[in-house]
């Protein structure tokens, strides 16, 4: 199962690769990185027949994480990909909006990677 990480911060890729280096090495987890909503949608198209878990930042220039969530949830009905939203601050408003749009989970920065690992392993 591929996990698509969407964040405008480039260093997220390095962080994930290091955080999940063991899992990546063991091929327990596979990450694909996109740095904007638009790029994420393009990758989604390319990975149409692969099971995808999406981890997306909310605050991004251009298409925001919520827009991306909305688009994915609307465009990929069967099977619906799992979308976990990550934002720098976990206010209720964002959380409610994300849930309304169909977000499967909600994480706040700074990311608790051990928690995330557990969740990812459980899901995958």
């Amino acid at each position: 199962m591929k996990i698509l990480v969407v964040d405008d911060e480039q260093d997220v890729k390095v962080l994930f690769q290091q955080r999940f280096r063991k899992e990546i090495r063991k091929e327990e987890l596979e990450f694909v990185f996109a740095f904007s909503g638009e790029e994420a949608l393009n990758l989604m198209k390319a990975m149409e027949h692969e099971a995808v878990l999406i981890l997306s930042d909310i605050n991004m220039p251009g298409m925001s994480g919520l827009e991306l969530l909305d688009t994915i949830k609307k465009n990929y009905v069967k099977p619906p990909p799992m979308v976990m939203m990550i934002t720098a601050y976990g206010d209720d408003e964002n959380r409610t909006m994300a849930k309304n749009l169909g977000a499967d989970d909600f994480l706040t920065k700074p990311l608790d990677f051990s928690l995330l690992k557990d969740k990812l392993i459980t899901l995958t």
């Binding site: 911060e9 962080l15 720098a88 601050y89 700074p110």
Partner: peptide
């Protein structure tokens, strides 16, 4: 303020996680 919070959270996220890693 909100922007600043976001902007600070991001580097903090990296600082915390890279140090933990």
């Amino acid at each position: 303020t909100a922007g600043i919070a976001h902007e600070i959270q991001n580097p903090l996220n990296f600082v915390n996680n890279f140090s933990e890693v």
